[in-house]
């Protein structure tokens, strides 16, 4: 049981990832798909940050009187880069959705894929 509880954070991250994946797979609204994608991204960032933390640790700032152990600075740096990438992809996706809306008149995927409308 303690084994399972020790990994509680990771389990939560997996659940979040699964929710995002479910949204991406089932929602027909393109905006909702992008939201689902962002939920998945948040889950992965959560995994990275969680893996870098230490119980009772301090942020990796030297010269501020903080005591070791320090959290891993790599995890923070990776997440920061990951967030920028996720933001960029989301921005492009939103602009594309606006173009689909203007040119096809809908952002519901099931309506867009129907041939006769």
């Amino acid at each position: 049981m303690t084994e399972g509880l020790a990994h509680l954070d990771y389990i939560a991250v997996v659940i979040l990832f699964a929710i995002g994946l479910y949204v991406v797979l089932t929602k027909q609204n393109l905006i909702k798909k992008i939201i689902g994608l962002n939920i998945m991204e948040t889950a992965v960032f959560g995994l990275i940050v969680t893996s870098g933390m230490v119980d009772g640790g301090s942020p990796p700032l030297l010269g501020q009187g903080l005591e070791p152990p320090y959290a891993s600075p790599i995890a923070h740096a990776l997440v920061l880069t990951g967030i920028v990438v996720a933001l960029s992809v989301t921005a492009l996706a939103l602009v594309l959705i606006l173009r689909v809306k203007a040119e096809c008149g809908s952002i519901e995927l099931d309506e867009l894929l129907e041939p006769d409308e």
Partner: peptide, 24 residues
């Protein structure tokens, strides 16, 4: 526009899987 959006969605999910693997 729709093809690009489909490409983006699928591509973003696959990139995310790679990032998840890197994190693991």
């Amino acid at each position: 526009a729709l093809a690009a959006l489909k490409y983006l969605l699928v591509g973003a999910v696959s990139s995310l899987l790679v990032l998840l693997a890197v994190a693991l």
